[in-house]
Design a binder for these strands. Structure first.
Lengths: 192, 192
DNA sequence: ACCTGAACACCGTTCAAGT
DNA sequence: ACCTGAACACCGTTCAAGT
């Protein structure tokens, strides 16, 4: 598929790709529907044949983001053996993804103007996947609470660092901050 | 100061007020600079005599939001006696503020296009204020870690509930979810 | 079926001009 | 000093028309 290949039916994906590129080149402000179309080499009306809305395109971008996040998490997860270590690695991967893809990460956690159940279903499935894969980390009842607490703490930490409210500019400072927080979560000293 | 009072020098605050009103009436989409000016009864060019930017106006709105949040937190804080209870009440107030002012809360935690150090300074001062007011909750070193962990967990929980990723639709479900998470933080069973 | 070009209503920003 | 009206470049969305 040489020049202009996506004019033969793959414009939908080309638009998502263009939006992703614009997102980490020029931030959220740079992502107008017209700019995306320009980048993909089509007219500004063309996207409407593949997405009902600008919001619908952004939802598709968010879904792509969650797929990327899932891969990053599961890959980090599989590099550890013990349940607690798996959790920690998954959490670190989550945070690192946020640091490395700020604009995308923020976009992912935003209520879409359209119905975003498809994206949310994927995100929740990802969450359950990680939790079940580490189910041997602690006894049943507490493991659900532990997973949820871990999630909200990592998510909050990532967001507050991105906002600049938690001061951690260098990668080292961020890692250490995350270390201290996972410790406080009890992930370090829960029985079994 | 009867009709059209803020034409005598208070337009700046009138614009902030108008933006706040629009924010919880029609959500973030409804807050265009022109709509704010319309609501305040001035021409769309008038705001530029008080704010260099639309972003600068939104920063002022965010600062107002943090002041409201501070009042809510400190008021809840003073209703408890023991340090741990004070933390819990403060955290609950933080979350409740998010639920009751979704659009404003989201706006507050967003990197302004302009320099937002003024807003961040206020937010950090608020954080230190709460932490120091509850300093007797636990021994020194751990109290800093505890406060920070509590903050990121409450913040993450609030955001993920607002996003719809953590299912808690009724106020009761949200309170219970927050209860469980504060428990897991160790705020329930730390020595002393 | 897929894409385009013109059109519409709206937006943020600037600037000369008014008081 | 403070505000206005017109103007500019941009945006999201629609729609008749082209292939």
């Amino acid at each position: 598929m040489p020049d202009g290949a996506y004019h033969h039916g793959d414009l939908r994906n080309a638009l998502i790709k263009a939006a992703l590129d614009l997102l980490n080149e020029s931030g959220p402000e740079g992502v107008s529907l017209r700019a995306v179309a320009r980048r993909a080499g089509v007219s500004h009306a063309a996207p409407y044949h593949h997405f009902v809305d600008k919001a619908a395109l952004m939802d598709a971008v968010a879904l792509t983001g969650f797929k990327m996040l899932r891969d990053a998490i599961m890959s980090a997860h599989s590099e550890a053996e013990l349940g607690l270590q798996q959790y920690r690695q998954a959490g670190m991967a989550y945070a690192r993804f946020g640091f490395d893809n700020e604009a995308l990460f923020r976009l992912m956690f935003r209520p879409g103007a359209t119905d975003r159940t498809e994206v949310w279903d994927f995100a929740r499935a990802m969450y359950d996947e990680v939790r079940e894969a580490s189910a041997n980390a602690a006894p049943d009842v507490e493991s659900r609470l532990m997973a949820r607490t871990g999630w909200v703490a990592i998510h909050g930490t990532t967001m507050l660092i991105l906002d600049g409210l938690l001061e951690a500019d260098t990668p080292q400072e961020r890692e250490q901050l995350l270390e201290e927080i996972t410790m406080m979560l009890g992930l370090g000293f829960i029985p079994r």
